[in-house]
Computed example of a mutant assay.
Amino acid sequence: MPLNAQDLQAAIPRIFAPWIQALRLQVLSADADGVVLRLPVDPALVHVGQVMCGQAAMAAADTAMVLALMSSLGEFKPMTTVQLQTSFLRPIAGASCTVSAKVLRRGKKLAFGSIDIHDAEGRLAAQSTTTYALL
């Protein structure tokens, strides 16, 4: 049975490192296929160009996919990122952005996913593909 948004939100402090917790990700929705998160664009994540740094976007994408896989699996199981490829399409500014992670295929040992990050105006700002090893 998939985990819901509340289950995943409660899991964040138990599973992720303190600096990931500091991103203040909010799980908006979750089902067996994926999750949608809200990422506040905190001043600590903004670089000299007055837009969110790519490192924060990639960390949010990676975290979103772990949560999506947890929802798909119905629980947390050990996994590790094998590949995370991100294309940045436009700067991310504004108060927040949304991070939507979708599980494309989950096998016994590998899982594949895609993540879209939309800016505060709903425009696609970054797109990632991922591969995870399920341990």
Rank of each mutant, 00 (worst) to 15 (best):
A95I: 11
Q9D: 02
M65D: 10
S71F: 01
P18A: 00
A126E: 04
Q9L: 01
S87F: 14
I115Q: 02
P78Y: 06
D119L: 03
V27M: 05
H47K: 13
S72T: 12
Q6H: 15
G34I: 03
I115C: 11
K108A: 02
S128E: 06
Q50M: 07
L67E: 02
A17Y: 11
A60G: 07
F112I: 13
V46D: 00
R90F: 13
V82W: 08
G34E: 03
A93G: 10
N4E: 01
A30K: 06
P2N: 09
P2S: 08
N4R: 05
A101D: 01
L39S: 06
V41N: 07
G107V: 05
V99P: 01
A111V: 08
A93R: 13
M52L: 05
L45Q: 07
T129N: 13
D42R: 07
M58L: 06
L110K: 14
L37W: 02
K109W: 07
Q83V: 15
D116F: 04
M65N: 10
L124K: 06
L23C: 09
D33A: 13
D7F: 04
Q21F: 07
R38G: 09
S87K: 15
D31T: 11
Y132L: 06
L124N: 07
T63K: 03
A44W: 15
A17D: 12
K77V: 15
A61T: 04
V51W: 10
P18C: 00
Q9G: 00
M58D: 01
R106E: 04
D33I: 11
K102Q: 14
K77D: 14
M58C: 03
L39H: 09
L104A: 00
A56R: 04
L67S: 03
L45F: 10
L104M: 07
S87H: 15
M79L: 05
L23V: 04
A30M: 07
S128I: 05
V99I: 11
W19H: 12
A133S: 15
D116K: 10
Q9S: 03
E121Q: 14
C97N: 02
T81E: 03
S72W: 11
P40L: 00
N4L: 00
A61Y: 06
G122T: 07
A120Y: 08
L69A: 00
I15H: 08
G49T: 08
L45I: 06
F76N: 03
E121N: 14
A95P: 11
V103Y: 00
T80R: 11
T131H: 11
A111C: 09
K102L: 12
I20Q: 13
Q9W: 05
L89Y: 09
L8Y: 04
L67V: 03
M1E: 11
S87E: 15
I12T: 01
L69T: 00
D33G: 09
C53F: 12
A95E: 13
Q26I: 10
